[in-house]
Design a protein around this nucleic acid. Structure first.
Lengths: 173, 173, 173, 173
DNA sequence: TATGAATGAGTATTCATTCAT
DNA sequence: GATGAATGAATACTCATTCAT
């Protein structure tokens, strides 16, 4: 991965995440990256190829975000880390996540099973804590977390801080 | 509103909702509507004008959906109707809602205050039911409802049915 | 067929015939025709669509060229007209024929059966004139005529005039 | 001439002969040859340089094909060898000849005088055999041979076999 | 000798939009 | 109200070619 290749990807990420895939032209990407338009196609074949490359990165980040939760053995801590995780995302990763959520609407990239490992772990935690329907609780919490993340990405971290305390209290953490 | 005008709008709705605004060309709309491309511009000035016209319709539907909840006086029923509402949407309105949610990601049209009347009513209901932080509960429930709607629009009503019962039970309705 | 449509076709014919299909850009065609590049695609869908439209015209000319020969009842005259035909082509049709011969090398357009009606008529004439293998003689003459046409298209009518007399004498016409 | 140089030339020959010069990209050639695109330009300066290099080879083959005829002293044998020559071309040389004929239509390379030595020899043979207009007969036979070659290159040797016998008989060989 | 990164001009094609009828 | 011809700017993508390594 050369420096220019990197620059292309990061420029594309920023534009795709904020303007959308279709609303972003390869010309814009090239200009922002400071490279010739042709180079994009040399390295990524397609505009779609660019998105694919970004998607791989996004999936990587997603997996990395999971690991801490997956390896936690204290059920209460599992819930706590999960609830806090949207607030821990470094600002420079916001575009990654924005893209991730935008892609949910593009059927080619929509994969609801991606979150399954997280849901499974949460279900395990709720079971340990003797919740009645742990599976359902897990799904619900996961959805709430996603919802909060979307709000953070759109309105900023601060606007959602109250939620964190509210949820922590709700789950007695 | 002539018949052709109507046909243009409904074709545009279907395409915008499923392919996205940018990914839909006026040519496609004209073909689907069975009219000349020029007519679109006669009636709606430009492509954005089409979206604006649809947006008005969407807002109408949104408001109509609210009224039943707004005028309900039994707090428990307010929550019940809210939770059940995503499952009551008739199938022919799905495109309307899909467009509504897609527009959330197209900055120009995102208006988070649109849901405020619903949130206020929910907050009132939670207060009546002596919840500790009714405002917070209201926002959370509203977000969960949105999340469920998104899931319904993407995966169908059936996939989310379990949530309804779960939430109704959770809120003791 | 509007005037501009006509202009596009004639410009394309001239360029395709002299520069070749691949060597001609739609930009060149548009400029020569004095229209916007977009119009080419509105009317002919593709660059290939342009070639297809020309091909139809070429086939028409070819058929028209045959009729006089096909309806001739005197076998000697059939041969005479055939031999003279390459020299009768009006200069403004040269591009048509140049394209016709160029297309022979593009498999999509190569159709060796196109000449069959002519060959059949020649075979009939040679039979009437008691040639031993009329079918073979017909094919040979047809090939010679094609060869002479190619030479005319490349080097001009005058360069090949001697052939006409030579062939007329050879076949005792 | 290194191995890679050779591979580039043979790949270019195959592509130019079958797809055409303009329709073939240096990228395709490089890929088929298994070398980097840059190497083509190191060795042949530019795309045209490649064609020039091939042209030299084609001219060599052409010359080689002539020698047997040129040095023949029996006039009947001269005609016989000439008529049989298109059928003697080894299959692996077909691309060479295809390119040769395609170039005829690309003006820069068309050189009608290339065949003159053959025509002269044929004229000599026809004179020896007391034909009335030997020069004319020579040109005609040469053109027929070319036409047959084109047909062979496009439709295969077998499709044209009948011609050989027919011509041999016609010239009483 | 050979590579592969990089370019800038060019390619076919699409787009939203205008306008005469 | 409605059409369809026409446009010019933009689009994704390709091309032959250069150059540092």
């Amino acid at each position: 991965m050369t420096e220019k290749q990197d620059k292309i990807l990061s420029s594309a990420l920023e534009l795709f995440a904020n303007e959308g895939f279709n609303a972003t032209s390869t010309n814009q990407i090239a200009k922002k990256a400071g490279v010739s338009e042709g180079l994009i196609f040399k390295h990524f074949k397609n505009k779609k190829g660019l998105l694919d490359a970004l998607y791989v990165q996004v999936e990587g980040k997603l997996g990395a975000g999971f690991t801490q939760i997956i390896f936690e053995t204290d059920p209460k801590k599992v819930l706590k880390i999960t609830i806090e995780s949207p607030f821990m995302i470094p600002h420079e990763d916001y575009d990654f996540w924005r893209l991730q959520f935008k892609l949910k609407w593009e059927s080619d990239y929509y994969n609801p099973e991606k979150m399954q490992p997280l849901i499974d772990k949460l279900a395990w935690a709720f079971e340990e804590l003797n919740y009645e329907t742990p599976e359902m609780e897990a799904k619900l919490l996961e959805q709430m977390i996603e919802t909060i993340m979307v709000a953070i990405l759109r309105q900023g971290k601060e606007s959602q801080l109250a939620y964190k305390d509210f949820l922590l209290k709700k789950y007695e953490l």
